[in-house]
Design a protein around this nucleic acid. Structure first.
Lengths: 237, 237
DNA sequence: GAGTGGTCTAGACCACAAC
DNA sequence: TTGTGGTCTAGACCACTCC
């Protein structure tokens, strides 16, 4: 693996385990360069990653300040799968696969998944139970060019794990949109709405390293079970 | 200004103005280095910024692909002020300052603004009208260590412009949390709720370059007037 | 003045894509 | 084979903080 990534992961672990005790600062870039036996520019690449991901803040003339609140954050920022999220929260969760099929792309899918009219695509509909209540409805559409096979077992576990580990698909970036809408009949049918008259809807388009669009997802959350946390850095002016 | 930032801004402009006509790719790093008369590493810093902000995607062995959908996005990602947002959307907007005062920090403010008990802080409450409907309620609290003076006129215009241009406060990063809650009596009092029984609440903590926390904001949106768009890049494994 | 992070360079080698 | 982006280096100079 690349040096700067190895060092980044090592530093993440040391920050999380409070390796430097109650230190509020990382060692200086020169010290780290000596310790890891790399050039200072390589250390700086690792530190840039730490900063982007909210672990540290670099202060000119002083050093790299360790940001402490990171670990208390709900990890929904960026591209995170439902399973990662649930396990990190220690919640009792369960996934119900309502549908796993191949459908012909309609107009919405043509533009959001970049496929031709009537081209067959994977459709997966899943209900997520948290603490025994059905509160999230996930509707995923995958481009079959990248995912030839898909099974109910994979959908019950984690599609992302399958994509990353088995198929080694290089997921790179995503566009996400969050709005509030009224429940559909499908929501009422498949979820425990408990009288709620709104749904938080997250629509995502997920891209691979080579900029090809391979997934479109609609994730519908009961509003009382929704929380989104974001860490944003002002970058470039 | 730094070379890589100058080049970054130049490239942003050229991408937005489709300077390279219908080109789907940027010139290669070596070509750009020659053109701007800088080293390749400097060009790479500019391109990294473009990638982080969703303008391009770099593909190994091929080049830098220009991502086209950027310009259609609602610009609420990252740290954006209400005024930036409204003007970019060409909406008729108006700000009403309901309150501008100095209050003693309660427990919530102590932890969210990092001040001592009963320390005086700025409190600003503003109603935002979009197309003549009062749909957003913004409650801002500022640490007075960084903002000695604040006037109604500044609040009616843009506090952020004042902070960045007049006070030259180096805003650096923010933690943002989005949840859905029921309207408060204050919401009902100051907004046109039009029968909506939910509010989208965005709570933000804004930090300066030196990691000091200087602003805590609660922005309460009527759900039908809320939209959040996020561009997320998978970074560091 | 000593130490810190911020920028910039010229050059090297690599993995990958296209021809 | 040629060109692309990805990594890494050693060294330089700067602005800033702290003492």
């Amino acid at each position: 693996m690349e040096k700067y990534l190895t060092i980044y992961h090592d530093l993440v672990e040391k920050i999380n385990k409070a390796h430097w005790k109650d230190a509020k600062m990382l060692p200086s870039e020169n010290e780290l360069a000596l310790h890891y036996e790399v050039s200072r520019e390589t250390i700086r690449k690792s530190l840039d990653l730490l900063a982007q991901n909210g672990f540290i803040q670099k202060v000119r003339g002083k050093g790299s300040v360790i940001l402490d609140s990171k670990k208390f954050d709900f990890p929904v920022s960026g591209i995170v799968s439902f399973k990662e999220l649930a396990t990190s929260l220690d919640l009792q969760v369960e996934t119900i696969v309502n549908e796993l099929s191949i459908v012909e792309a309609n107009e919405i899918l043509q533009s959001n998944l970049g496929v031709r009219a009537k081209e067959p695509v994977w459709k997966v509909v899943r209900t997520r139970k948290i603490d025994n209540e059905k509160v999230i409805l996930d509707k995923d559409y995958f481009n079959r060019d990248f995912i030839p096979y898909l099974t109910k077992e994979v959908c019950e576990n984690s599609v992302y794990e399958y994509l990353e580990n088995e198929l080694e698909l290089p997921i790179s970036y995503a566009r996400k949109e969050i709005v509030v809408e009224e429940p559909t009949v499908e929501d009422e049918d498949l979820l425990d709405l408990a009288g709620h008259s709104n749904m938080v809807v997250i629509r995502s388009m997920v891209y691979l390293d080579d900029t090809s669009l391979f997934q479109y997802t609609e994730s519908r959350h009961r509003p009382d079970k929704f929380k989104f946390v974001d860490f944003a850095r002002r970058v470039g002016n």
